[in-house]
Lab assay of single mutants.
Amino acid sequence: SQHQEELPPPPLPPGWEEKVDNLGRTYYVNHNNRTTQWHRPSLMDVSSE
């Protein structure tokens, strides 16, 4: 059986914070524009500005 090492997730872009809601779900807060989202932001998402 193949065992895959879990890679650590990439660092969050500046201004982002990973949080967990009261149901144990992980979400991400963008403090730059005060938004939240479910999927993890990547540095590539942000660098397109």
Rank of each mutant, 00 (worst) to 15 (best):
S1L: 01
S1D: 00
H3K: 06
H3S: 07
H3V: 11
Q4K: 15
Q4C: 10
E5Y: 11
E6D: 07
E6C: 07
E6M: 02
E6R: 06
E6F: 04
E6T: 10
L7Q: 02
L7E: 02
P8Y: 03
P8V: 12
P8Q: 13
P8T: 15
P9T: 07
P9W: 02
P9A: 12
P10T: 07
P10Q: 06
P10A: 09
P10S: 11
P10C: 14
P11A: 11
P11L: 09
L12S: 07
P13S: 08
P13H: 03
P13C: 04
P13M: 12
P13F: 02
P13I: 03
P14I: 15
P14G: 10
P14S: 14
G15T: 06
G15S: 08
G15K: 09
W16M: 02
W16T: 07
W16R: 02
W16K: 02
W16Y: 03
W16V: 05
E17D: 04
E17T: 08
E18M: 10
E18L: 05
K19L: 07
K19N: 12
K19T: 04
K19C: 05
K19W: 00
V20N: 09
V20H: 13
V20E: 11
V20F: 11
V20T: 09
V20R: 13
D21T: 11
D21H: 01
D21P: 00
L23N: 12
L23V: 11
G24I: 00
G24P: 01
R25T: 12
T26S: 14
T26P: 13
Y28A: 01
V29Q: 09
V29A: 09
V29H: 06
V29D: 03
N30F: 02
N30D: 07
N30E: 03
N30I: 01
N30W: 01
N30K: 01
H31A: 10
N32S: 12
N33S: 14
N33D: 08
N33R: 06
N33Q: 04
R34T: 10
R34F: 12
T35V: 15
T35I: 09
Q37P: 00
Q37K: 01
Q37W: 03
Q37D: 05
W38F: 11
W38R: 11
H39M: 15
H39Q: 12
H39K: 15
R40W: 04
R40N: 10
R40G: 01
P41I: 00
P41G: 01
P41A: 01
P41Y: 00
P41D: 01
P41R: 00
S42K: 13
S42P: 13
S42F: 05
S42W: 04
L43S: 14
L43W: 04
D45I: 02
V46L: 14
V46G: 14
S47L: 05
S47N: 15
S48M: 06
S48K: 05
E49T: 04
E49A: 07
E49H: 02
